[in-house]
């Protein structure tokens, strides 16, 4: 069973998507470690280390991820996290933003999959496809 650590990054309290993600991932057969809302990037990385998770799936709904996720590369280098897949989704900018700007930006932070304002099931389907190909 694949393990996923999930939660909402930063001072973001939008909880509805987080609950849905928890339920959907479980229904799809993942083992879920849900850190809930208001989670710092360091806590996410640390939870991946403690659980030896395969996937880190971060949500950001109020757009502040731009501020937090830059440090991903740095935190990632603190541990030997080779095989973890990094996924982020939700509203990844404050205000209007083009997919063609957002996606490369988050990829440069170290995310493998980026879903800006993409419906959850579409995103999770793609994530599962990605994981199958990876194996």
């Amino acid at each position: 069973m694949m393990k996923v650590v999930t939660g909402v990054v930063g001072n973001d309290i939008h909880v509805v998507a987080n609950r849905l993600i928890d339920i959907s991932l479980q229904a799809r057969g993942f083992e879920v470690f849900n850190l809930g809302v208001n989670t710092s990037l360091e806590e996410f990385i640390d939870a991946v280390v403690e659980t030896d998770a395969d996937i880190l799936l971060i949500s950001s709904l109020n757009g502040e991820a731009e501020g937090w996720c830059r440090d991903l590369q740095f935190l990632r280098s603190e541990y030997e996290l080779k095989d973890v897949t990094f996924v982020i989704g939700g509203n990844l900018a404050v205000g209007e933003a083009k997919q063609s700007d957002i996606i490369p930006k988050y990829k440069s932070y170290g995310f493998d999959l980026v879903f800006h304002q993409i419906d959850l099931n579409t995103g999770l389907d793609e994530m599962e496809r990605y994981m199958r190909e990876k194996q």
Binding site: E42, I45, D46, A47, V49
Partner: peptide, 8 residues
């Protein structure tokens, strides 16, 4: 001696 700051 612990594995991470946020948990262990």
């Amino acid at each position: 001696i612990g594995l991470t700051n946020s948990f262990s």
